[in-house]
Design a protein around this nucleic acid. Structure first.
Lengths: 131, 131
DNA sequence: GCCAATTAAGACCAATAAGGTCTGGTATGC
DNA sequence: GCATACCAGACCTTATTGGTCTTAATTGGC
């Protein structure tokens, strides 16, 4: 399959939604849930992960909520995927581990991984929101 | 995650192994299993899938076995992944379906998918075997 | 023509990961 | 101090993947 997970999917939907509006607005989980149509507990999980990954910042307490940690132009697709799913790589190679599997088979994988990573690093949230 | 599956992994190991040897040799599943160190039933499954996908051809009966369907230079990484895991795409978009999820969020995904696909199409089995 | 060897195909089970839910805790504002 | 809303983590259910097994079909050799 080679696909990103549903959680990452939701993350992008969420972030594009927020990027298309005023950055200073605080969105609470309930409003986002009804606006986007994702179950509240699930969207809450996504918000938590994105906050831990530094993509969003949260404001606790009454009248609290979530907002983008940086301008959308400074958030890249690579950062988002990395926050949710870990390092971007088609194969296990690029990690700290000795890349026991694929790289031994062929160093060509490194090139493929590098190309993908570069592509995602050059794609900002602002650009995605425009479409 | 975003990784290829283990079955695809095995496929590449297998194909690189075969590409590094004489193309006309017929390999049976048992020999490949002991040579590469993958359990026989599993490697048998991989061989079957690759044969159905047109990457390998098989010779039935006694003294039968598997061999590459084409020269290694004419087999691409994209073809191999597609045979094992279906169409190459990070998101659901590129398929025949109306791409209900990501493409609605952003057409930028199309560009990412296209880049990845091009990279994999330009990577031949022969090139991978050299490394 | 019969038997042995080998692939083909598909059903089947087990393990893992993902998706989604729930509960208790903590900080903030009124 | 009380209500609101986020925070954190455990938990369960389901889907996918990985791996195994069984039966059928085909070919070569005796």
């Amino acid at each position: 399959m080679l696909r990103i997970t549903k959680i990452a999917d939701y993350g992008f939907i969420l972030l594009v939604y927020m990027a298309n509006r005023d950055r200073d607005i605080l969105y609470n989980a309930k409003d986002l849930s009804s606006a986007i149509g994702i179950p509240l507990p699930t969207i809450s999980k996504v918000l938590k992960i994105l906050t831990q990954g530094g993509i969003l910042k949260s404001q606790q307490g009454s009248k609290g909520g979530y907002s983008l940690a940086r301008p959308a132009s400074e958030i890249t697709a690579a950062q988002i995927i990395e926050a949710i799913e870990g390092p971007v790589a088609i194969t296990d190679c690029s990690g700290a581990k000795g890349c026991e599997r694929n790289c031994k088979v062929s160093p060509s994988w490194k090139k493929v991984n590098a190309t993908l990573e570069t592509t995602l690093q050059n794609l900002s949230l602002a650009e995605m929101a425009k479409g």
